[in-house]
Design a protein around this nucleic acid. Sequence first.
DNA 1: GGTGAAATTGAGATATG
DNA 2: CATATCTCAATTTCACC
Lengths: 169, 169
Amino acid sequence: MNALRSPELDETDWKILAELQSDARLSFNELSRRIHLSAPAVAERVRRLEESGVIAGYGARVDPAKAGQPLLAFIQLRCSLSRCLLKTTGADDFPEIAEVHKLSGEHCSMLKVRAASLGHLEGLIERLGEHGELRTHIVLSTQYDDRPLAPTTPDREVSDSAGWARPGR
Amino acid sequence: MNALRSPELDETDWKILAELQSDARLSFNELSRRIHLSAPAVAERVRRLEESGVIAGYGARVDPAKAGQPLLAFIQLRCSLSRCLLKTTGADDFPEIAEVHKLSGEHCSMLKVRAASLGHLEGLIERLGEHGELRTHIVLSTQYDDRPLAPTTPDREVSDSAGWARPGR
DNA sequence: GGTGAAATTGAGATATG
DNA sequence: CATATCTCAATTTCACC
């Protein structure tokens, strides 16, 4: 179910990912033109990226505001350890929940929710309040939403092991 | 540049959006089959959804962990009002920033960032710290990430105006 | 990884029920 | 507005260099 080796992505792979993240419907022809490679070569790379799971899928990006849900909020849930949300009730009961992350710190969860109106958001918060104490941050505006994943600059990763040499030799 | 009327999305539109969010590469034929409509009708609806901006685009979903950036964190930035991030320095200098939201409350911003390692994250936090006091929440695990936008259940929106009747009559 | 050609597939338009 | 069919164009994929 997993790729064997670490999916080391080279520069070409990142070019492909950049193009495909901004337009999932590019044909191999067009894609090969943009990154200056032959179509079969690109197809092979894309196939590998899909199989290894780096590319998880292709989806339409829906503008929440244009779709009638202009309000965005982050909600921190401080719930008793095992009675967290999604254990007592599925998240399917809350279509307005876009993301759920388990946080370090005080056994909290971070929710990202969307709502159609302040009234709607108020009701949602009330329903969520039953699962624990919560702290709500209402978003006033969004500068960047879901920016495409870009390669990490390798020059800064060196400090990961705090400069220790490998014990090998 | 804008649609004239409010983009009232009916049930069929939401079916289309659901399918397209989970698979952006569906052909009109396949799509029409799934929602039980004719291909031309579907094509017309999709065209309208694109033109009105409800569908903002189509993109590949990249798995950050599989792409070498397994760490996720939320960072609240408490910066002096006008010297907020993205005014002194562009966000292009920070490829690891996935989202930037301006928050209500204490003039804060909410950042969502991804990193390759704890060392990488540490360096990022240091660099961000120059823009103001910050509070970091490291994500331990993610239950839901970017769930597809779903229609808001209309039964709860009624309470928006707190039950007041229209003054018309 | 590049090049070529053949086969499959989907888009668009038209005419009809 | 749904259906059917047709045509055209585009892309995928294969075999070989």
